[in-house]
Design a binder for these strands. Structure first.
Lengths: 166, 166
DNA sequence: TTTTGTTTTCAAAAAAAAATGAAAATTGCG
DNA sequence: CGCAATTTTCATTTTTTTTTGAAAACAAAA
């Protein structure tokens, strides 16, 4: 396998994994393309590199910027915008955690809190109570853990992993 | 809000969250319905309860059994099959981790290992090398951590969380 | 201001994913 | 076996998501 082939495989695989995770496949491929690039790319180069339309390119670049995974660069004397990926993988992971926590875990917690009022009135026999109680506890733990992770630096992150698997 | 309303909200929310996570919304709703049920339900009751077709019900029940989140129960003297959800939330979480790790993390690791051969030949300047190296390390750490989690019991799980957030 | 290169928008088209429902297969029973 | 209850399959339809591309908006330079 040569470098070109390896890159291709990486881009495909990153896109595949992303779509398993509920993230647009193309968005992940744009991200992968930029991750592998030596220098910032223009929208045209991304378009060309992945054979996708201008509109699609623009939408996904904007989404990546929104997620904090890609940054814009303006070169003086040029009108074109250049894009480059955040290459510190720990930062990438942190940004993804932040974004998904907000979009997914927090609304779930909100619902669990809302139904907790009902739970209080439950007879002990109701499975509803137990499910909500357990899930609420798990979600809150997960929430706290993620908050801690988000605040942590990469060293701390490695340490945690080390402690967990030792 | 009464119990009925609470249940409804929970089912919707569980389905919504699942679809953010790349899991079929209906599958999660069937799971939620069974989680909240006092006793095992028949396929007909699930069908009725969520207003979905027989085929859809069957497919999603099978998928849930495959994920280890739902079990079949046969009542003696009856031909109908009954279904009930795994209600130990820690087991639920563990099963989900097992399933998704196999389907998502492991193929990614495989690709990263494959391209590692290319990486070896890289000049230091190639961003490809660094990205692959970092990501490979992160994925391996994640993989180890998940293996440990899978092997852990729920007490141990709580302890880990506690250690992480203390 | 007009021109020109560039980005953004968004209605429409295409593709992908999920759901339906009727037919086929399976199962237990007399 | 033959029947009836139940489950499974899968071609078709429906819904949802993604992509396209041309038009509009924008922004710097002439």
């Amino acid at each position: 396998m040569d470098i070109q082939e390896g890159k291709q495989k990486f881009i495909e695989s990153w896109g595949k994994m992303a779509s398993d995770w509920g993230i647009n496949r193309t968005m992940a491929q744009v991200h992968a393309l930029l991750l592998l690039a030596h220098e910032p790319l223009t929208a045209d180069e991304v378009m060309e590199g992945l054979s996708i339309s201008r509109g699609n390119t623009n939408m996904n670049l904007r989404a990546l910027i929104d997620w904090g995974l890609v940054h814009k660069q303006l070169k003086s004397g040029e009108r074109k915008e250049y894009f480059y990926a955040e290459k510190d993988m720990w930062t990438v992971v942190r940004q993804i955690i932040i974004h998904r926590k907000k979009k997914e875990l927090e609304p779930m917690l909100k619902v669990l809190d809302d139904v907790a009022g009902v739970e209080a009135k439950c007879p002990e026999s109701e499975s509803f109570c137990n499910v909500v109680k357990d899930l609420r506890m798990l979600s809150q733990k997960a929430n706290q853990t993620l908050d801690t992770l988000i605040r942590a630096d990469s060293t701390w992150f490695s340490n945690i992993f080390f402690r967990m698997v030792r």
